[in-house]
Design a protein around this nucleic acid. Sequence first.
DNA 1: CCGGACGCCTGTCGGC
DNA 2: TGCCGACAGGCGTCCG
Length: 271
Amino acid sequence: MPELPEVETTLRGIAPHIDGRNVVAVHVHDSRLRWPVPADLPEKLVGHKLLGLERRAKYLLLHFRHGTLILHLGMSGSLRVVDPSHPRTPHDHLEIIFSGRRCLRLRDPRRFGAALWTEGEATAHQLLCALGPEPLSDSFDVDYLHAITRQRRAPIKNVIMDGHVVVGVGNIYASESLHMAGIHPARSAHRIAPARLARLVVAIKEVLADAIASGGTTLRDFTDAQGKPGYFRHHLRVYDRENLPCECGRGSIRRSVLGQRATYFCPACQR
DNA sequence: CCGGACGCCTGTCGGC
DNA sequence: TGCCGACAGGCGTCCG
């Protein structure tokens, strides 16, 4: 479900309520996420102060003095901060109660998400150490993408969705970025000229920044930490718009499948 | 190394 | 109305 803008929206929503607070209780209602939630998570966290939160790729990192809680929302996960008395719903698998009656609740119907504990430098964790650059950072630029894509014959959409190339670009924003850049999603990455790659880099940054500013995209059930939907759905130019006219005025949007993922594009303005 | 397919899960929706 | 298949915002792993 959540791509980078939705995870960033979640981070900004929960941080003010829990940053700097002490953990007073941890309840693991269902440990069967993508990997088992560590059985000793309560004893790791209770009594310790949350020193800071950050996002890396689509992971949320909650830093404590003696380690870091790594959260991932998978396809259907969401986090909310509620009063501990707020009734639980069937898929609320993990609760972390902070001082001041702030309850951080992880809901994840499909259980593709994760909650892991790591000690030492979080970025050295196996899941994080091989990730590509953040798309909104200066290190993600045309020189970098050019160097990477020269060796890649796969469709460009698959390449920009590969977290070892650049993180955070999920299925919605890959289609949207390629449309903004005028690049056909199935084009072999190594056959795209530098000037067009430069447009793609700019498009990825713009699309993601706009989506963050809109609070992410709500297609079905994404909500922020207060339960509000994201408004970027109204900005989508191709995603989930099969057969609707493209704004270029020269064709209608088509749907195809790349890497087993739905892909939306305009054959008239994307080459 | 690369590229493509698979599997993990539950919920929802459209067609018959 | 009920059933059944297709599909869903991610990603590690396996195989050729």
